[in-house]
Design a protein around this nucleic acid. Structure first.
Lengths: 200, 200, 200, 200
DNA sequence: AATGAATGAGCATTCATTCAT
DNA sequence: AATGAATGAATGCTCATTCAT
């Protein structure tokens, strides 16, 4: 039933999706949908939560647990690959999270913002760990890292759309593109040699 | 009248915005809106076009014209600053472009996709110019650059939202964050020294 | 201006015709139409009156004045021919009278009913005169004649539509058809030999 | 529900009738009307079809089946009586067919034109049968008969309105009027003695 | 004498939601 | 446990009509 909802919401959008269509696609009657998921809002929230959980689980599973012999570079790379693989495999869920949930008012925007913050926090911790690998006491302020994490997440989101729309670009390719763009800059920052506007 | 429409569409979304509300906010009657802007679809399209034009104009004006004494680094930095300044100054217009237009079906998605491609092409050309400054014959395939440009644009979009939502982060700060993340990696790529998955 | 109205009303119908379209077709502005013909209702009434007058004038002119040397048979025949010729030459006016005016409520139905009664009375007088030619004191009750006149008028209306829609049928042919159908019966009645249900 | 629609359409006309009024008269809510009859157009079409079927059924039932001992004169007379009785008993349905359907554009005009052609064909066949009763090989061209049938149908339509509007005129009286007018002429035609314009 | 500009009121249609069963 | 049947409320859109000029 949630499958049908995710598919319909992802393709039609929150407003354009009708409970009728969702119920029909799920092969049940409308009142049944209301029995389990008490309103359109709750149904959409449930979709968001399910897809958010699936996405974070996939990324965490990809990145793996921190450990002595596992460099952060590798964990980041694997996490990104898992992210792109998941979005490619669940285009409707990704559409719900990335496109629909953020555009239809507070109740949902908050839900997806929480997801985003969770991912940003995760990425932030990875960046911090990476920096500590390079330099015992890296000169990275918290505000700086938050911005970097947001930038990384946004870049990943955009690349996900691009990879899905571009034949021949798979998850590894997308992940490599993002690493090529950002890994070097992260290292500079950890060493305190990051770009600064002074030069220009 | 378009102002009212942009504001309403940006906050409510295409479907949830009613012509009634738009007209009321504009201080005119509904039929007048229809007299000038023929239908809800056309009205939304007009909003998209106006905001897209304003945004690209702001970015181009910020980046300035290419010239002998102007390093690309500086043009990129200024263009980004202009972008963040514009999105901060026009949050509803930015919401229409970034959030609403992409989520409400073909007619509008196509319109905003064209805008995005234009910006991506612009960024692509800047990256190419930057690479040529570093190395006469940089080893960057076209596909690589397209990916990089999409990543950069996505990072910028995400940072715009972050900057707008985070007190104390202004356009310069957001631009600096993106430069810090990406400039070093772009330089590596131009020199043929970019990150590669082989290591991990 | 009335021409434009008749044409539009005749083709679109009263409700579907918009004052905008009428004004545009007349080459003037809408307020001017309101200046001269103060509302849609009055405009439609004016159309009805004009077309009714034109039609009755044409029929009367065709039938000619009563006179010693003019048999009523001939006057009826010529009047019918004039009727069919007029309706063929003014299809929009005919549509206004025959189709539109009778279908859109009291104010107009009354107007066209008056026209119809006028024509019925005219035909009634012709039938009476014809009967008197055949028999000094014909046994025709007034009620009988009224019914006959209504039947004749209805037959003529229907034949007008048929003639207009059927290539190769002109006014004389339509008039001859009606005379063939009805002239004999009228003569019988005048002689007191009309059909009666007793037989069946 | 169709009853309410027929009544409203018959009295107000297609455009002036509102779905709201129809629903209210039917004692149900507007969405229910849409649930069963999908649109105003379909609803009107359904009315036309139902009333057309009822009318033709009544006429056919009245005229009865052809048979050896049944003269056509009688079948025509009975069919006409049935027609006038039906139109008197169903004034709104008759208004829908005779007045509204023909004035509101192609989809409906076509529907009622089909009905009319069916009736004209039926009358045509009766006329042919009557002629053959009178004369083995009657000299009636097809085009002639078509015109006669149209004239008869039009006369009947007009008499139906007249009978409904005139107190004291019932179905038998209306039918007799039409027979008196036309039966003699039909007989003449069958014998090849019909009226011709040569005389006048 | 003529109109550009504007609106109040109405209408077809849709959809989230609820009962009675 | 499940639904057929029904509706209140909202929305896009149109049009006869009127001023200010």
């Amino acid at each position: 039933m949630l499958d049908a909802a995710v598919r319909t919401f992802g393709r039609r959008g929150y407003r354009a999706a009708s409970m009728e269509e969702i119920a029909e696609l799920a092969g049940v009657s409308k009142p049944l949908v209301y029995l389990y998921l008490h309103s359109k809002e709750e149904l959409f929230s449930a979709c968001i939560r399910r897809e958010a959980a699936a996405l974070t689980a996939a990324v965490r599973a990809g990145a793996g647990a921190p450990g002595p012999g596992v460099p952060v570079e590798r964990r980041l790379w694997e996490g990104l690959t898992a992210f792109f693989a998941h979005t490619a495999d669940h285009p409707d869920g990704w559409a719900v999270l990335h496109r629909q949930a953020r555009t239809h008012g507070e109740p949902f925007a908050a839900e997806v913002a929480a997801l985003r913050e969770e991912i940003v926090a995760y990425v932030t911790s990875l960046i911090g760990a990476a920096a500590r690998e390079v330099h015992r006491d890296p000169g990275l302020a918290d505000g700086d890292v938050a911005g970097l994490a947001h930038a990384l997440v946004g870049a990943a989101e955009s690349l996900a759309d691009w990879a899905n729309a571009t034949p021949g670009v798979d998850a590894r390719e997308a992940a490599a593109t993002l690493m090529r763009l950002a890994w070097s800059g992260l290292g500079d920052l950890a060493r305190g040699e990051g770009w600064s506007p002074g030069a220009v």
